[in-house]
Simulated scan of single mutants.
Amino acid sequence: MNMYNRFFKRPQDLLLAIVALVLLSPLIVGTALLIRLKLGGPVLFKQKRPGKDGVIFEMIKFRTMTDERDEAGELLSDDKRLTPFGQKLRSLSIDELPSLMNIVKGDLSIVGPRPLLVEYLPRYNERQMRRHEVRPGLTGLAQVNGRNRLSWEERFEMDVQYVDNITFIGDWKIIFQTAYKVLKRDGISSETSATMEAFMGSEQNHKEDALTR
């Protein structure tokens, strides 16, 4: 852990998050009102995610999907529940604004590996688990290099690459690249899904499991 990561990254995150919350407060309030009108309540979407060292926290985002269910009471697929309004929020990353509070609390960093689902934890191999050596981020190296269009293996390799090379210049490069990607609305969806397919484990993991049976 270098000097920047040890002493300066967290204070920088806190300062940037507080400034962003103040400057973007009209947008945050306006978005909350629109979600209430278009999608109803609740306005916020909360979900447990693994953070640094795998410690679970509750991530906060703006709601972008309906709660539509099938005849069996199961939620419909993301494609069917994601409204055009919700898609627009995602394409501009406005749905991520409440997560600034997670940064203030210390759950998230501005830059780091994206926090994924808790159910993925047992599916990672040893190298992929290294993404939890640092605080997860609102944006990260994978997000500026393809985002949801990358394969899971490509994303995890970039996460580990970031963990091994955290620098002040590198973080700010990712921040500026993120702003550019948001304006371009690039990489929001994968090739086959409105968001990203579930991670079921790497092919290599499955081969190793088969050999040990």
Score class of each variant (00 low, 15 high):
61 K>H: 07
149 R>F: 02
204 Q>C: 05
183 L>P: 14
163 V>F: 00
150 L>E: 01
52 K>F: 01
32 A>N: 08
124 Y>N: 01
77 S>G: 09
106 G>M: 06
17 A>S: 08
65 M>I: 05
25 S>I: 12
130 R>D: 07
81 R>F: 08
179 A>C: 15
59 M>E: 02
166 I>N: 00
152 W>I: 02
181 K>L: 12
146 G>D: 13
84 P>L: 03
128 Q>M: 15
213 R>F: 05
54 G>M: 08
164 D>V: 00
153 E>Y: 07
14 L>K: 04
26 P>A: 01
149 R>P: 06
93 S>P: 15
27 L>Y: 02
116 L>F: 06
81 R>K: 06
77 S>M: 09
157 E>R: 09
158 M>I: 08
201 G>H: 07
154 E>T: 06
8 F>S: 04
164 D>S: 02
151 S>P: 15
179 A>Y: 11
88 K>P: 14
39 L>E: 07
16 L>V: 13
83 T>W: 10
165 N>K: 08
161 Q>E: 15
94 I>M: 05
36 R>G: 04
95 D>Q: 02
130 R>G: 10
102 N>Y: 08
5 N>W: 06
209 D>E: 13
22 V>Q: 09
76 L>H: 00
62 F>Y: 10
59 M>K: 01
59 M>I: 11
178 T>I: 11
1 M>Y: 08
120 Y>A: 00
13 D>F: 07
136 P>T: 08
49 R>E: 05
80 K>L: 09
67 D>L: 13
163 V>C: 01
85 F>P: 12
66 T>D: 12
81 R>C: 06
77 S>W: 09
89 L>W: 02
81 R>G: 07
166 I>R: 00
139 T>N: 12
178 T>V: 11
188 I>T: 13
105 K>D: 13
109 S>P: 00
131 R>F: 15
193 S>C: 07
74 E>V: 08
26 P>D: 01
209 D>A: 09
121 L>V: 14
31 T>E: 15
57 F>E: 06
45 F>M: 06
170 G>L: 03
40 G>Y: 12
51 G>C: 00
202 S>A: 12
178 T>P: 15
78 D>P: 05
68 E>I: 02
98 P>R: 02
172 W>C: 09
148 N>Y: 14
122 P>E: 02
198 A>V: 10
211 L>Q: 07
